[in-house]
Write a protein that binds this DNA or RNA. Structure first.
Lengths: 232, 232
DNA sequence: GACAAGAGTTATGTATACAAGATCGGATCC
DNA sequence: GGATCCGATCTTGTATACATAACTCTTGTC
C-alpha cells in the first residue's frame, strides 16, 4: 500500500537537507510559521546549527512545493494563499480525488477493501467522541486509503502533495458548524460506492465531499480571517 | 490570458539560477540529454562558466519538477520514465484537461472563443501541410488556450507543468500512424463542445483525446523503444 | 582465474569568504 | 513640512575550500 513515505517525486534530499526541509515544512503546516512570515537564512542557519547552504537548499525545496515564495534577492516568505486561490486548489483537489475514487472503485483489491473499512471505522469512532483533532487525523488516513486503492502511482503522488498543502485549511474547515458529522456521512457514501464498484458514484461523492461550494466558501473566508487575527 | 510566463509557482529563480535551469531543462525536454544521463556538477559548472553552487540549485529545481532524479551522495541523472508510469501520467493529464475543458465550456469569454478558434485554425493549417513539427507547436498553443479559458489559475499551472513534462512523449505520439488527422478531428470536437457550453461533452472529448488506451499503449511503447535505440 | 578486500581517487555535501543588489535611515532640497 | 536622493547596512547570490561518502582499480588470496 502506498503511503507518504514513497521516495519518488518527493525526495531529492541531501543528508541534512531533508531533515531541515521537513522541520520547516512542519512549522508551516501546523501554523507555527504564519503566512507572510519572513524566512531569513542566517537566523534559520543559526537555529539549526548549520550553515546557510543547507538552509537555502531546504528553502528552495519548499518553494518548489509551493509552501513558500522566494523572490530573487528579496528573500523567502511563507506563502500567503488567498481565498480565491484556495478555492481553485480545492477544486483541483476535488477532481483528483474524484479520479482516485473512480479508479479505486474499479481496481481495489481485498486489502484495500479492508483498509477502507478500517479507516471508515476509525473516522466513526473519532466523530462519535467529538474529538476534532482525532477526526482530522483519521480523515487523513481515510483519504490516503482511497488514493492507494487507485493504483495509479503518479496520481497518488499528486494527491498526497496537494493534500499536504491543503492540510491546514482542511483542519480549519472541520471546525466550522457541524461539518464533522456531514463529513462522516459523506465518507460512508464514498466507501459504499467504491465497494459497490460504482466509479461514477464514488467520483461524484468525493467531488462533493472536497469541493468548496456555496456557503462553505463563506465559512472558509471566515475561518481564514479568524486564523489570521489569531496569529497576528 | 494566462501563458506559461506566469511567474507564480514556477518561479523561485535566483539571478543566474533560472537561466541555468531553463537551459538544462530544454536539453532534457528536447532529448539532447537522454534519460539516464548522468549530470555531474563540475562539468556542468565548467560548461556554463559558473561555480557548482548555482548548478546545484538548478539541479534541485529540476528534481522538484520531476525531470531528474537526485540520489543523495550519488549524483543526478535525467529521469527515466517507464511506460507504465507514463501511462499513469497521461491518465492524470487527461483528467486535468477534461476539468479544464469542462470549466472552459462554462466560463469562456469572447476573447477565449476567438483564441480557441484561431488556435484550431492554425492546427488545421499545420495538419493540411503535413508538417508534424508545426502541428506539434500549434497543438501546444491550442491546449494552452483551453487551460486559459478555464479561469482556474491553479489548474492552469498544474496543466502547464504536466504538459511540459510530457512534451517529448506527445511529440513521439504524433509521429505514430495517422494520429495527426485523428488529433485534429478530436480538436474540432473539443472546440465545438466548449463553444456550445457543453461541459460534459468537452470533458469527455478531452479525456479521450489525451488518454492512452488500447492500441495507443503499444504505439507508445514502440515509440519509446525506437527513441531509445536512436539515442544510444 | 575469479572474487574479495583495501587504498586511492573522484564527486557530492557543507562551511566560509566574497560580491552585489535591496532596504532603511538621514540629510537636503523644494 | 514633505518628498526625494544618497549612503550605510543588511541580506542574498556566487565562488571557493574543506570533509566525507561512493566508486574504482589494484592486489592478494583461495
Amino acid at each position: 500500500m502506498y503511503t507518504r513515505s514513497d521516495p519518488k517525486e518527493t525526495q531529492a534530499g541531501s543528508s541534512a537537507g531533508s531533515r531541515l526541509r521537513d522541520e520547516i515544512e512542519n512549522e508551516i503546516l501546523t501554523g507555527r510559521l504564519a503566512p507572510g512570515t519572513r524566512l531569513d537564512e542566517v537566523p534559520l542557519a543559526a537555529r539549526f546549527g548549520v550553515s546557510r547552504t543547507p538552509i537555502r537548499e531546504a528553502l528552495m525545496q519548499l518553494s518548489a512545493a509551493g509552501l513558500i515564495d522566494i523572490r530573487p534577492r528579496r528573500g523567502a516568505v511563507v506563502a500567503e494563499i488567498g481565498p480565491e486561490r484556495l478555492v481553485e486548489m480545492f477544486a483541483v483537489m476535488a477532481e483528483l480525488e474524484a479520479m482516485a475514487g473512480r479508479l479505486a472503485a474499479r481496481r481495489h483489491a481485498e486489502a484495500d477493501r479492508a483498509a477502507l473499512l478500517a479507516a471508515l471505522d476509525a473516522c466513526r469512532a473519532a466523530a462519535a467522541s467529538g474529538d476534532t483533532d482525532a477526526y482530522y487525523y483519521e480523515n487523513e488516513k481515510f483519504h490516503h486509503a482511497i488514493y492507494a486503492a487507485s493504483y495509479n502511482g503518479f496520481l497518488i503522488e499528486q494527491c498526497n502533495a496537494l493534500h499536504r498543502r491543503l492540510k491546514p485549511y482542511r483542519r480549519l474547515q472541520l471546525r466550522v458548524g457541524n461539518r464533522l458529522a456531514t463529513s462522516l456521512a459523506e465518507h460512508e457514501a464514498v466507501v459504499e460506492a467504491i465497494l459497490a464498484h460504482d466509479g461514477g458514484a464514488a467520483a461524484e461523492a468525493l467531488r462533493g465531499h472536497i469541493a468548496i461550494q456555496g456557503e462553505r466558501f463563506g465559512d472558509l473566508v471566515a475561518s481564514l480571517a479568524g486564523a489570521r487575527a489569531g496569529a497576528a
